[in-house]
Design a protein around this nucleic acid. Structure first.
Lengths: 192, 192
DNA sequence: CCTAATTATGGTCAAATGACCTTTTTTACA
DNA sequence: TGTAAAAAAGGTCATTTGACCATAATTAGG
C-alpha cells in the first residue's frame, strides 16, 4: 500500500521521501470486505483513515429504518468521524466499506506527532480541511436550493465514476430522498 | 468595538494583551444598517469578518426568486465566504445585515500576518475551523434525516434567541422549506 | 404616532413525495 | 455456474409540499 500513498502524497504535497516513509511507518494497514465496518455508531473513531482502494461510506441508520449517508470516500481520499476522533467521544456514525477496500490507519497520537514533525504535512492537512469546508458549504447550498432531480443530476455530473459503483439506494441515501423518488426521476429522464 | 473583541478573545483564547491590541490595530470598523450588504454575489470577499453586534446572513437568491440562507452570524461569531476569500474569486453568496450590526474587518494579507505572528491566535483559528466542520456535518445530517417539523424544532431549541430575531421567512430559507410549510407546522403545534 | 412596507396567516388546488407492496432484474459468492 | 440475496422498477394510495392568491397582523422608520 505504500506505493499508493507515496504516489498520492508526492502528487499533492512537496514532501521529502523520508517524510513519506515516516508517515507510512506509523500507519496500520487494513483490508475490508464489502459491508465490513471500520467502526459502528457508539464506538470511538480511533483512526484517521486514508482510502487506498475501494469505497467507504459514513452513515447512520435512524430509528425509522432509513439509512442516511453523510460522506462517501473513494480511493485517494480521507475519512473519519472528526467529532469523535478529535474529542475521543462515541461516534454518531458508522463507517463501512461499500466494496472491498484497503485502508491505512493512523492513531490520533501518531498523526498529531507527524503534523508537528513535518511542517509541509501540516500545511497539506490544512489544505484538505479547507477543501472539506468548501465542499460542505456547496453541499448544504445544493440541498437548500436544488430540487431532487437537480441534486441527482449534479451528483452524477460531479461523480460519474462514483455513481456507477453505488447502488441507487445509496445515492438516494446520500441525496436525502427516497429510492422511489430517484427511480421516478430516472424513469422520467428515460422518456426524453 | 475593541472592548467587545477583547472580551471575546480573552474568554476563549489565551492571548497576551499586546496580541489583542495588535489584532485590533489591523481591523477596520464598519456599521451596517438593516439589509445593508457587506458584499454581493459576484464580488470578491475581501475581508474576514467578526460580528461585534447584530446579525448577518450569508445567502443567495436563485433565479426562481427564492432566497436560501447558508449561514447566520450573530454577535461574537465570524463570517466570510471562505471560498471567495481564500482564492480571491467572485463569491456565489451575498452577506448582509439582518438587523443593525457592527463588524470588524481584516484584509486577508493582514489576517494571514497575524496568524503567522501570533501562534496562539493561529491555534485559536484552527479551533474555530474545527467547530465549523462539526456544525456543518451536523447540519447536513439533520437535513438528510429530519422532517421539516423536526428541523424547525431543532433549530428553535438550538437557537431560541436567534429565532426570535429572525423573520419566519428567513428561518424557512435557512431550513430549506417554504414559508407555507413553516406556517403550517406552527399552526399544527398551536393546536396541541 | 402614522403610514407604507413587510411579514405572517389562510384557502385552494395541483404536483411531488413517501409508504407499502409486488414483480422483475441484477449481482454476489459458495 | 447456479442460486439465494440484493437491487431496481413499478403500482397504488394517502400525505405533504409548494404555487398562487388574498387578507390580516405587525413593524420599520420618518
Amino acid at each position: 500500500m505504500i506505493d499508493a500513498l507515496k504516489t498520492y502524497l508526492t502528487n499533492r504535497a512537496p514532501l521529502p521521501d523520508e517524510a513519506v516513509q515516516r508517515i507510512y511507518s506509523l500507519a496500520l494497514e487494513r483490508r475490508l470486505t464489502r459491508n465490513e465496518a471500520l467502526f459502528n455508531v457508539g464506538d470511538v473513531c480511533r483512526y484517521k483513515v486514508f482510502v487506498v482502494k475501494g469505497l467507504l461510506h459514513t452513515f447512520n441508520n435512524t430509528e425509522d429504518g432509513h439509512e442516511h449517508i453523510l460522506q462517501l470516500s473513494p480511493e485517494n481520499t480521507w475519512t473519519l468521524d472528526v467529532e469523535s476522533y478529535e474529542l475521543q467521544t462515541p461516534s454518531r456514525f458508522s463507517i463501512a466499506a461499500v466494496e472491498h477496500s484497503e485502508v491505512l490507519l493512523w492513531q490520533k497520537d501518531d498523526f498529531d506527532m507527524l503534523l508537528r514533525e513535518i511542517p509541509e504535512f501540516k500545511l497539506f492537512a490544512e489544505g484538505l480541511i479547507a477543501e472539506y469546508v468548501h465542499s460542505s458549504r456547496r453541499r448544504i447550498f445544493e440541498m437548500l436550493s436544488n430540487s431532487p432531480e437537480e441534486q441527482y443530476d449534479a451528483f452524477i455530473q460531479a461523480n460519474p465514476e462514483l455513481a456507477a459503483r453505488l447502488p441507487l439506494r445509496m445515492i438516494a441515501a446520500y441525496l436525502g430522498m427516497s429510492l422511489k423518488t430517484l427511480t421516478r426521476i430516472r424513469h422520467a429522464q428515460l422518456q426524453r
